[in-house]
Structure formats: C-alpha cells, structure tokens
Simulated scan of single mutants.
Amino acid sequence: MTTGISPLVRTALAAVAMAAALAGCSALPSAPGAAKACGSSFETFERDTLYFGRAIPSGGQVSDAEWTGFLDTTMTPAFPQGLTVIDAAGQWRGVSGDVVRERSKLVVLLHPRSEKDDAAIASIIGTYRQRFAQEAVLQERQSVCVRF
C-alpha cells in the first residue's frame, strides 16, 4: 500500500515530529502576554521552521556548495547557538499557477523570542530570496517548551 508521500518527505516529516517530541514541547499560545504553560523545568522558546526551495526559477538548482556557503555566511552567524537542517522534497503552487516540485532544505531554529532574532530571520529570508531569485521562503512559528 502506498500513501503517495515520497520516502524523503516521510523521513523529513518524521524528523520534524521527533524534534518536537524531544523538545518536550506542547503548543503554547503565541499571543503577547500569553500565560506561561511550560513545566517548572522548561523554558518558553520559539520554534521557527524555514522552508528553502532549491529550484532557481530561471533554471538550475541551488547547489550543495551554494547552500553550504549560505549556511556558513548568513545563517550560522545569525544563530551561532545552533540550528537543524533537514533535507526534503517540496511541492507548492507559485504565482504563475504552476506546481513546482523541488529539492528543499528545512531549517529549524529554537530560540527565546526577541526582536533581534525576528530581524535576523527576516534578513536570512530576504538574503536567500535575493541571492537565489526565490519567489518565497515559508516561515512557520510555534511557541514551545524546551529543556536542555
């Protein structure tokens, strides 16, 4: 029996689910001033997942070397405390109406909520979009409970 989900996508989804479970998280309201729902040994953090497509609209792909360069020069300096990169296969409908299927990278960032980190994430997204002529980079945010 097949589900129509590629093994690569299934693996990426399982990794994201595992990261959430290992973080000991439960979804928290993201609204400012929301009551703290973390247990006494947990801290409230934000989990941002960024979805980077690697297809370049004018043709070609963001190469492994180009991705590593972007990671080293843009992402790591912004989040030196750490991040997780997951290989994935993505699919989405662009503004042209065409379905785009492409190799992708998911980057998971766990961090305390701050204007500095919000600005860093916006800069990372803007830099990737400009450097690789991307129409969009998806950002997903959840409040989570973590313990190190």
Rank of each mutant, 00 (worst) to 15 (best):
M75I: 15
L28Q: 15
E140V: 11
R147L: 12
R147H: 09
R54E: 07
E140L: 09
K36H: 14
E43M: 14
I56W: 09
D118G: 01
A19Q: 12
S30H: 07
G126S: 10
S114D: 02
E102W: 00
L110M: 10
L13Y: 13
P112V: 09
V137Q: 03
C38L: 07
R10N: 14
D87C: 00
G60C: 05
A17K: 12
V85P: 01
V107R: 09
S40L: 12
A15M: 10
V9I: 05
A55H: 08
V137S: 00
G97A: 01
S63E: 02
G94V: 01
S6R: 04
A15R: 12
S40F: 10
V137I: 10
G4L: 05
V137N: 01
M18G: 08
W92I: 03
M1Y: 11
F45W: 15
Q81I: 03
I56Y: 07
Q91E: 15
G4K: 03
F45P: 07
V137F: 02
Q81K: 14
S58F: 00
F52M: 05
V62T: 06
G33M: 03
F45E: 14
K36R: 15
S6Q: 07
A27H: 13
Q91H: 09
K36T: 14
E66R: 03
G59P: 01
R10T: 14
A17I: 00
F79T: 02
Q130A: 15
A14W: 11
Q134R: 02
A23V: 00
P80E: 12
S96G: 02
D87E: 15
A65G: 08
S123D: 15
G90V: 08
Q130R: 14
I121Q: 01
A122R: 10
V137E: 06
T76W: 09
A136C: 01
Y51K: 02
P32T: 07
A35H: 12
A88Q: 02
E102P: 04
I121E: 03
D118H: 09
P57W: 06
I86V: 14
S123A: 15
L50G: 05
R131S: 12
P80I: 11
V107K: 05
W67I: 00
G33H: 05
G90T: 05
T3P: 01
D48T: 06
A27G: 08
S96I: 02
V85Y: 05
T3E: 04
D64G: 06
S30D: 04
R131E: 11
D64M: 03
V16E: 12
G82I: 07
G53H: 10
S123V: 04
Q130S: 15
A88D: 15
V62M: 02
Q91G: 15
L13I: 07
I121N: 00
F148G: 11
A37T: 14
L109W: 02
V137A: 04
C145V: 10
R54S: 05
K116D: 12
A88H: 10
V146W: 10
F79M: 10
P77T: 05
G39H: 09
A65C: 01
V137D: 06
